[in-house]
Nucleic acid binder design. Structure first.
Lengths: 342, 342
DNA sequence: ACGTTTTCTGAAAACGTTCACAGAAATAAT
DNA sequence: ATTATTTCTGTGAACGTTTTCAGAAAACGT
């Protein structure tokens, strides 16, 4: 008797108890035909009575399929990722797969995790990683292991689903310009992420489109975290010729900026308009409610799952990139430019 | 050749390639002694070269241990749970276990998930479920499967770690009373949760201690979600003799209450003091910053893991309940009662 | 030089399943 | 009644590991 194994009841125990072979038990377990109805019933009852629960590892060892979809995620803390996962979870719930999530706050361990998944722990993998994924593409592609990068820009590195960050930034500036703003400060996201770069590019392009000031001082670098938004806004506010509106590359930094603006004794939106990007749950809750660009995060999760399933079906399918549209969400943090104020 | 199995390389392939038996490969894999250094080196090199990655299911089938800690969680959307998981993850990272998370937005599938874990998928289970857990205690205890309920009140049902919700509520009221408030509205949490009940009981006890009005109308029912806080606050504000302070059983509802208070044309904290419970990340970000009762969520996660490890070590250990202290976090949403205002 | 211990290695069984196969029992067709 | 088909059931192999066992090779003591 194995002391470290909690008293498990196996298919064999059930078989003995029900007076059949273990193959038959397996058959009823898998709803296979060709089991005499009364036998099936007897086995089912025994299964129930003995509290049998299948050993998935044995099953998946044998079948070569785990019926699990892996999710590799960094830093669950933010509601941002929570929303994506919500979508993933909802979509998976409609399949006969289950979701298996590994979090890692330690980038160093990630390759190990990826290897675990590839090694058979899951039939496919969704990666939601806020950093360069190159270290993993080798392993993943070499085995043609089904996977999708989420919230990531597509490339020849692998399949991905992301949002139209470039278009969203354009939309934001268009909106501010429509309110009469001409001097618009921008707080960048982390520039080692494609989303950070794309939003910046969008800002620049829109500024050029409208012939706005392209004072380099109007661009302040941030890293997507609230404190960096605070600092960047302070820099923008202390400019000799300061902007009348600030567009932050995400909501968290917009919140930081709002703080800084208030500390400078200015009112939002009367003295300074503020826009964010993401439409996190807090955006609506904060005061004044934040005007922002919505990313369809939940939808992103859903699409990622759908895409992954196609790769599980056919691992050889060529890489696909799906880009989801972003929307303008108008709330209370932006106001028309008052000529007087200028 | 199995078509659905991606070209895996097994211990046997490596053995053949390195010219040894697979037992030897297994030995070097597990750092066992008694392998000739040069053999070990050759095998290691082959392992590396062929890109071997272990099949965990096979390993755990054989050893009876998965080296995984399961986490069953509902509704990741909230940052609240994210914080607990942060702690769990940090603590697990210091062990040689890994974390395996199942989310479920569908309560109906939970028993199935629990069964999966018990069936060998993980060596122990942490349950963070915002509802009654009775349906699972049977299965879990019958097998003496190592588990801990997190953010849950201890009982004879199973081991748990939770926060001192009762004491926290007392602390909150004590603080408001110290500011001079005598008429304090309370917005309850979900009353099917032990935390909801305990915070209410704490409120009542503290009110009695200080001989406050025990007008039943001062207690408005909420469900821990922001909208319910909004509604409940509206009810409290429309009272003929309205409170001078509102204590919400969690931060989310406090945010809803703040909204309602502003809509009623009142200022916070000048006209109405507001307190929350939890100290979610937004509490500090909102304006005015929310005075609240801090729950050591991350610590809760850490302790839960520590506790679980002791049960994995010795499944027979009697049920333990750890209660973590809560703290008062003073910010800007409460002000002394102005006698004039009354 | 010889037994003894120590180091090293491989064969084979086991973990809990599924599945191909073949045989038995029941049913249908002649 | 006999054969052909269908339904049912059990045996044994396999999935990729770890681990026990025993035997071979090396190192050691005398």
């Amino acid at each position: 008797m194995n002391h470290n194994a909690p008293n498990k009841v196996t298919i064999i125990d059930v078989a003995r108890e029900a007076g059949v072979s273990y193959a038959t038990v397996s058959r009823v377990l898998n709803d296979e035909p060709y089991v005499k109805p009364e036998t099936r019933e007897r086995v089912t009852a025994t299964l129930q009575r003995m509290g049998y629960v299948a050993n998935r590892q044995a099953r998946s060892l044998r079948t070569g399929r785990s019926q699990m979809i892996g999710l590799l995620v960094r830093d669950l803390g933010t509601g941002y990722i929570g929303q994506i996962i919500s979508g993933v979870d909802a979509e998976i719930a409609e399949t006969d797969f289950e979701m298996l999530l590994f979090t890692t706050h330690h980038q160093a361990r990630e390759p190990e995790y990826v290897a675990t998944f590839v090694g058979g722990m899951a039939d496919g993998l969704l990666l939601i990683l806020p950093h360069n994924v190159d270290p993993y593409t080798g392993l993943l592609n070499q085995r043609r292991y089904p996977h999708v990068f989420v919230d990531y820009k597509g490339s020849d590195k692998g399949p991905a689903v992301g949002a139209d960050n470039y278009g969203g930034a354009i939309m934001a500036i268009d909106y501010l310009v429509s309110l009469g703003h001409r001097r618009i400060g921008f707080i960048t996201g982390a520039l080692d992420l494609t989303s950070g770069v794309d939003r910046l590019t969008g800002y620049r392009q829109a500024a050029a489109n409208h012939g706005l000031d392209d004072d380099p001082a109007l661009v302040a670098e941030g890293d997507y975290h609230q404190p960096s938004g605070h600092a960047a806004a302070q820099a923008l506010l202390s400019l000799p010729h300061r902007p009348t509106a600030i567009f932050a590359a995400n909501d968290a930094m917009a919140f930081g900026a709002m703080e800084a603006i208030r500390e400078a004794g200015l009112r939002i939106p009367d003295d300074m308009s503020v826009m964010g990007f993401d439409d996190t749950p807090q955006a609506a809750g904060v005061s004044p409610a934040l005007t922002t660009i919505r990313q369809p995060l939940e939808e992103m999760g859903r699409q990622a799952v759908q895409m992954l399933l196609t790769y599980i079906e056919d691992p050889e399918r060529p890489f696909e990139y799906r880009e989801l549209a972003t929307d303008l969400v108008v709330r209370d943090s932006c106001a028309p430019l008052r000529n007087a104020a200028k």
